[in-house]
Simulated scan of single mutants.
Amino acid sequence: MTPYGSFLFFIITAILLAPTVILGLNGKQFRTYNLFVTLIFLALIFSSNLRETYALIFFTIWQVLLIKGYIAYRKKANSGVVFCLAVILSLIPLLISKLSPYLFIQNLWGFLGISYLTFKGVQMIMETRDGLIKNQIPIVRLLYFILFFPTISSGPIDRYRRFEKDVNEDIPCERYKLFLYEGINNIFLGFLYKFIIGYSINHYIIVKLGLITHSAFQHHLFYMYAYSFYLFFDFAGYSAFAIGISYIMGVKTPENFNKPFISRNIKDFWNRWHMTLSFWFRDYVFMRFVYWIHKKKWIKNRQIISNSGYILLFLLMGFWHGLEIQYILYGIYHALLMVVYNSFEQVNKRRKWWPQNKFTHIVSVVITFHLICFGFYIFSGYFIHKGV
């Protein structure tokens, strides 16, 4: 069963979470029951594919051993070599899964949501290195965080310390009513985004582009804008479902989108689009790379360091999506946009070429919107399949 892929999923969700709602409205705790619900959903999601089930079990055991082992090690020592080894070992199942199709070998380790579960494991190892996670974590709590079913397939990506705070917190009945309201509101928003607007864009525009457009240029142009909006509403709808169900379960899973099409520049866009993923790459790739280069003093120019970090960041993000040419080009495209904007921003601070006022703000939003849509056009690979 695919999460959020059919109305049957929501019917089962409503039935299974009814006791959670009843307990919450009566001011009682529902942690133990929610663990039970998570196990049921994992069984429903993965029961149709035994290979994925075994891969998930192996992956979970692997990550738990690495995380608990590194926490125990970090109390005694802090070797950079051991830290890097722990991160690499945490990434290995994901790397094998991603590379298997291109190496023409059977993908035995991949399963639905492996990327997002890996991000959780890696961030816990990194935060342990930073001293933010100091004590051993009960194995049930660790498993609940890694396998939290509302976000298992495509995020949003939560952080352990934030998740732990929510799970540990007692929720009075009056406060749970607010959680329930936010949860239901997000679920209905998800239906609007994914099953009404997203479906309509795909069914009435994208599928019928051949009837709507009259030239190759017009065809690709219409597709670029239609696909951009479809991608947003489909993915934002999924995220709204995950956030809504999380709230009903007493967990305030972070937002993933914040009106990305009104971004005033490309940096602003990545602070609004798929925020939990972009913040993850920012915190655990970009910031660490910049700090490392500063520490080693290999490059002294801060702008060159930040531009190098952007190139690394978006190339990795492109390769993470896959080794197909459109994903690599998408990463290169956004790396180029970030480098150009970063350089422009530094010069503009000194020379004031682009003043801050309502007119320039509107122009910036319009320009950024078109740049973003062209990036999604690259990401779609439509120009490869249909030809330019």
Score class of each variant (00 low, 15 high):
Ser153Asp: 08
Ser153Val: 14
Ser153Thr: 14
Ser154Gly: 11
Ser154Cys: 12
Gly155Glu: 11
Gly155Ala: 14
Gly155Val: 09
Gly155Thr: 08
Pro156His: 07
Pro156Met: 08
Pro156Gly: 04
Pro156Tyr: 05
Pro156Cys: 06
Ile157Gly: 04
Ile157Met: 06
Ile157His: 02
Ile157Ser: 07
Asp158Ala: 11
Asp158Val: 11
Asp158Ser: 11
Asp158Arg: 07
Asp158Phe: 02
Arg159Thr: 11
Arg159Met: 11
Arg159Phe: 02
Arg159Ala: 10
Tyr160Trp: 07
Arg161Glu: 14
Arg161Cys: 09
Arg162Gly: 10
Arg162Thr: 15
Arg162Asp: 15
Phe163Ile: 03
Phe163Cys: 00
Phe163Pro: 01
Phe163Ser: 00
Phe163Val: 03
Glu164Ala: 12
Glu164Ser: 11
Lys165Gln: 12
Lys165His: 10
Asp166Glu: 10
Asp166Cys: 08
Asp166Pro: 04
Asp166Val: 05
Asp166Ile: 03
Val167Tyr: 07
Val167Lys: 05
Asn168Ser: 15
Asn168Ile: 06
Glu169Lys: 14
Glu169Tyr: 05
Asp170Lys: 13
Asp170Phe: 14
Ile171Gln: 01
Ile171Glu: 02
Pro172Tyr: 06
Pro172Trp: 07
Cys173Gly: 04
Cys173Tyr: 12
Cys173Met: 11
Glu174Met: 01
Glu174Phe: 04
Glu174Gln: 07
Glu174Gly: 00
Glu174Arg: 05
Arg175Ile: 03
Tyr176Ile: 01
Lys177Arg: 13
Lys177Trp: 09
Leu178Pro: 00
Leu178Trp: 00
Leu178Ala: 08
Leu178Val: 13
Phe179Ser: 02
Phe179Met: 09
Leu180Lys: 01
Leu180Arg: 00
Leu180Ser: 02
Leu180Pro: 02
Leu180Gln: 03
Tyr181Pro: 07
Tyr181Cys: 08
Tyr181Asp: 03
Tyr181Gly: 06
Glu182Met: 12
Glu182Gly: 12
Gly183Glu: 02
Gly183Val: 05
Gly183Met: 04
Gly183Leu: 04
Gly183Arg: 04
Gly183Lys: 08
Ile184Trp: 00
Ile184Gly: 05
Ile184Gln: 02
Asn185Arg: 12
Asn185Thr: 12
Asn186Met: 11
Asn186Cys: 14
Asn186Arg: 11
Asn186Thr: 02
Asn186Gly: 07
Ile187Lys: 09
Ile187Asn: 10
Ile187Tyr: 01
Ile187Leu: 09
Phe188Ile: 14
Phe188Ser: 09
Leu189Glu: 09
Leu189Phe: 08
Leu189Arg: 15
Leu189Lys: 15
Leu189His: 06
Gly190Pro: 08
Gly190Thr: 12
Gly190Val: 11
Phe191Ala: 06
Leu192Ile: 14
Leu192Trp: 15
